[in-house]
Structures are given as C-alpha cells and as structure tokens.
C-alpha cells in the first residue's frame, strides 16, 4: 500500500469530474420533483443519453453534437414517461421503473457495434491566466466545458426557482396541484416540460460518462449513478446548492475509493466498490428524518375533474 502515490491536487480535480454526471442528473430530477413528479427512470434516461451521445459523437466526430444528441435522447425517453404519467395517469413509481428497464434494453441495442471505440476528445477549458495558476488552476480551471455547464445549470435552476415567476409557478404545481389548477395554471403542461428538462439533464449526465469520464461505451455503464442521483435529491432536501454539495461529496467518495483501489489498500476491491452505495444508504438514513421540505404533491396523480 502506498498512499503517498495519491496526489491531492489531482484528487480534487478528478472529484469535479466524477461529480459532474451526478450533478447534471440530480439537478434535472430536482426540477422534476419540484413540479411534483417522481421520475424513477433517471438511470434509464442516463444510459440512453450515454449511448445516443456516444453514437452521434463517434459518427459526426463532434463531441458537442454528441452532448446535444444525448440531451435529445434523454428528453425523448422522458417524454414516454410524461405520456404515461401525465396523460394516461399511470402510477409514477411503476412507470419510472419501466423507463429504467426499457432504457437499459434500448441502450444496449443501440450500443451494439460501439464497443471498444474511442470517442472524439472533448476540448478542455484553457484560460491563459487562470488555468496556469499553480494549484487552483489545476483543480478549478482546467476541466472540460461540461463541468462548467453543470455548474451553470445548477445556478440557473437555483435562480429560476427562487427569483422568477416561472419558478414560483413550478413550485406551486409541485406543492398543491389542485390549487395551481384552480388558479388557471396548466398543471399537466408544466409538468411535462419539467419532465423533459429532467430527461435532457439526465441524458447529458450519461453522455458525460460515456464521452468524457470513461470514455468508452460498455453496457450498463452508468452502474447505478442515476439511482444515486435520486438519493441525492433527497439528501439535498430539494435545494439546488445542496445538490452541488452532495454531488461533490459523492464524487469525492467515488474518487477516493478508486484511488485506494489503485494504491492497493488491503481492503478487497469489491468492498471498496460497494462504498458509494453504502454511503448513499447511510446518507438517506440521516436525511430522512426531515421530510418537511419534500414537495407536497410529490408522486400524486393529478386529474382535473372540473
């Protein structure tokens, strides 16, 4: 075992990379849940985004088009969920599970023939002054653009939810859909838009894994990150900034765990690989004491009877 081989600067830098897919998926789901919809299909949308982005990026040679395609793929899949739960009024838990099962199948179907290929590289941010700063530059200012896009989306979501009328309406729909409906807001339409946004975010999160973090395509490569993102929303008590904090925390756990594996710690690899899931459970236990911040209409079916 050689812990000195772990470089703290690289560790912090890779933490930001490891956290980004989680951050993207979780902030999308946060918006969905704020609108009162529980979409358990994050894992399915992520993996679909991962392969859509990968396929388009490989075929066009443009990673940005790949990310766009991933957002589109995730959104299209989430539209299925939206139709089921908002139009056909199906159970949200069951529909979300179905979405994950379907997405896993769909992605490995599309992904045939993409195994073992390297995607085109993603350009990294390089601001002459900032990126060359000794420690901070390496940690904060020399990542790919997606890392910053994730941060921008979190900021945008926070601002929208807190300071804009649109955010207020979204929260109203999530807190009490009957009242929002009575006020004349189109509950179903707003929820569908939120679901599409969540799908696009999850898709981009998936593409981040297949295009940048790994970068390769393997079946089932999201390995539960979508589910951890769902747990993250609970951890964050439905607050965008806490999602950021939580994503970095989980990113940190993943990175440290991988570094410990590489450093050859005496703990077997399998037990280290369990740690992110076990820590998720632990965090859920700690956070579940406080249920007050959950949107009041979360997971309830809305049917306008009048």
């Amino acid at each position: 075992m050689d812990l000195s081989s772990i470089n703290p600067i690289l560790l912090l830098a890779s933490l930001m990379v490891a956290a980004t897919p989680l951050l993207l998926a979780a902030v999308g789901e946060l918006v969905v849940e704020k609108a009162g919809v529980l979409n358990l299909g994050v894992e399915g949308m992520m993996i679909t985004g991962a392969i859509c982005g990968f396929a388009i990026a490989v075929n066009t040679g443009d990673p940005f088009l790949g990310v766009l395609a991933a957002a589109g793929g995730g959104a299209v899949l989430s539209l299925l969920f939206a139709l089921l739960t908002q139009v056909a009024l199906a159970n949200q838990v069951a529909s979300g599970l179905g979405l994950t099962l379907f997405g896993l199948g769909l992605s490995s179907l599309i992904g045939q023939g993409y195994q073992g290929i390297r995607p085109p590289p993603f350009p990294k941010l390089n601001i002459p002054g900032l990126s060359d700063l000794p420690v901070i530059g390496r940690i904060l200012f020399s990542h790919d653009l997606m890392v910053y896009l994730g941060l921008i989306i979190v900021t945008g979501v926070w601002f929208m939810l807190k300071y804009t009328r649109a955010g207020l309406i979204l929260r109203a729909v999530g807190e009490n859909h009957e009242a929002a409906h009575a006020l004349g807001y189109k509950v179903v339409r707003i929820r569908i838009m939120a679901i599409l946004f969540g799908g696009a975010c999850a898709g981009m999160g998936g593409a981040y894994i297949s295009l940048i973090r790994v970068p390769q395509w393997t079946e089932g490569m999201t390995a539960g990150i979508g589910w951890i993102a769902l747990a993250l929303v609970v951890f964050a008590s439905w607050k965008p900034w806490r999602v950021l904090l939580g994503a970095y925390l989980f990113g940190g756990v993943t990175v440290i765990q991988l570094n410990l594996q590489a450093a050859g710690v005496a703990i077997p690899v399998e037990y280290l690989a369990m740690s992110p899931y076990l820590i998720t459970i632990l965090v859920l236990v700690i956070m579940s004491a406080d249920k007050s911040s959950a949107p009041a209409s979360l997971g309830r079916i809305f049917h306008a009877s009048r």
Binding site: A90, G98, F102, S108
Partner: peptide, 26 residues
C-alpha cells in the same frame, strides 16, 4: 436478434400495460 432487443421487448410490455391500465379507472 440481439439479446438487448428482448430486454427492450419486456420493458415495452410494462409500458403498454401501464398505458392501457388507464382504461380500468377512467
């Protein structure tokens, strides 16, 4: 036929079921 197609097939079954189920209550 790829194995994944069968998995998708099973997923579709659940989707259609949930969608058709609306007719039970509405």
């Amino acid at each position: 036929v790829p194995a994944a197609a069968i998995q998708m097939f099973q997923g579709m079954l659940l989707f259609f079921l949930l969608a058709v189920d609306v007719m039970t209550n509405y």
